[in-house]
Write a protein that binds this DNA or RNA. Structure first.
Length: 219
DNA sequence: GTCGAAACTATAATCACCCA
DNA sequence: TGGGTGATTATAGTTTCGAC
């Protein structure tokens, strides 16, 4: 596999933080640094109990994500606290893009596109929230079972049965994916539980894969 | 051909102590 | 609190492999 006789590495050296010119080295560095980043993020989750989301686009345009408990829940929390996004409040985003050698205006444009998408998702979520809530700031199904009326219990039962069907379908989906892992996700979503088993194909059971709706909210 | 992952070495960087 | 030190971790550089 690896020909040791031809290895001429001089070990790690200090490099200047600027865009790597050589495309091959850039790709390798991207892969390694991304692994390191996700590892650090997972450590932050474990050590401090922090909720963390990291989304990385490769130079080739592939997207990788890490999230605890999952990327979308962290984004939802972020949006809930930042209803009026202001570009001036995100200096690190543009700084990191500049550091990577991407044109500043282009990075801003991409960033604003993402923000618009997130805003649209947030509005969609808020609309659903209005439908779900009973008006006292919590879900009626959060109340103790004994407090629910007959109609609510029947709705709850129907919802649980629906949820059960969805879980079964999802389990089947994941089982099929495991048997042929290459054709399912464009995103490579990683949970905190074990980010290094496989960062490309295995969905972590402790997280809900991004974009998959188990249906909890549709009761 | 392209892309991403992995193997491997050597060393920079960081961390965890200990002590004054 | 700050400095010294040894241990640990991260990663640059290079090559190879496999999937598509």
């Amino acid at each position: 596999m690896v020909n040791k006789e031809r290895r001429t590495s001089m070990g790690r050296k200090k490099i200047e933080i600027k865009r790597i010119d050589h495309q091959d080295y850039r790709q390798v560095t991207f892969s390694k640094r991304r692994t390191g980043l996700f590892k650090k993020a997972s450590e932050l989750c474990i050590l401090c109990g922090a909720d963390v989301a990291a989304i990385v686009f490769s130079p080739a345009g592939k997207v990788f994500s890490f999230g605890h408990p999952c990327v979308d829940s962290v984004i939802d929390r972020y949006l809930a606290r930042n209803s009026s996004p202001d570009v001036s409040t995100y200096p690190l985003v543009t700084t990191s893009h500049r550091g990577a050698g991407i044109h500043h205006d282009q990075a801003n444009q991409q960033y604003m596109d993402v923000l618009r998408q997130l805003e649209a998702e947030k509005k969609r979520g808020e609309a659903l929230e209005q439908l779900r809530k009973g008006g006292q700031g919590r879900f009626w199904w959060d109340a103790p079972i004994n407090d629910l009326g007959l109609h609510e219990l029947e709705m709850f039962k129907a919802s649980m049965e629906e949820l059960r069907k969805k879980v079964i379908r999802k389990a089947e989906y994941l089982r099929l994916e495991a048997s042929s892992p290459s054709s399912f996700f464009n995103e490579n979503s990683v949970g905190v539980g074990d980010p290094f088993v496989s960062q490309t194909t295995e969905a972590n059971p402790s997280t809900v894969p991004y974009g998959f709706d188990l249906g909890y909210g549709h009761i």
